[in-house]
């Protein structure tokens, strides 16, 4: 019984199939979240086809082409808790509140993005079907 419970707790290693919400993600809202460096934070580390945001980071691969490389389920896993794939990743887990250390009081117990926001970001990333400019 305990073993069964443990097995149920082990997350799928490759993808999170089930959407986090019943409402489908909205790519327009997702783009706004990605572009907002205090909400999505994405452009601090990644670059992406969002030309109005001039200062984009280069700590992580470009977001361009994300929709070619990954399925919705694969993107969901990488956003929700990419450390399940790579524990050393610098990418924050956007929908995990456990196992963190000294979280500021204002953010304690809260994920970086809400469930619907994550679905919106996934919907936007799926629209990125061109490889980054060289």
């Amino acid at each position: 019984m305990a073993i069964l419970a443990l097995l149920l707790l082990i997350p799928s290693a490759r993808a999170d199939e089930a959407p986090l919400t019943a409402t489908p993600g909205d790519a327009t809202r997702g783009r706004a979240i990605v572009a907002d460096r205090t909400r999505g934070l994405c452009l601090l580390c990644h670059s992406g086809p969002i030309p109005e945001e001039r200062f984009q980071g280069n700590l992580a691969p470009p977001l361009d082409g994300a929709g070619l490389r990954w399925t919705a389920a694969e993107l969901r896993l990488r956003l929700v808790d990419g450390k399940r794939l790579n524990p050393d990743s610098i990418m924050p887990s956007y929908y995990r509140t456990e196992g963190l250390h000294r979280v500021a009081p204002a953010q304690r117990g809260r994920p970086i993005l809400a469930a619907q926001e994550i679905e919106d970001v996934i919907a936007y990333l799926l629209t990125l079907r061109e490889e980054p400019p060289r």
């Binding site: 980071g57 700590l59 924050p92 250390h101 000294r102």
Partner: peptide
């Protein structure tokens, strides 16, 4: 030590990624 909601340590930026750009700023 990793810390905070973003779960980052000093090492991850200032050793592993120094010289790269966090948004517009060189780390």
């Amino acid at each position: 030590e990793r810390r905070g909601q973003l779960d980052l340590s000093c090492v991850q930026c200032h050793d592993d990624n120094a010289g790269r750009r966090l948004a517009g700023s060189v780390i």
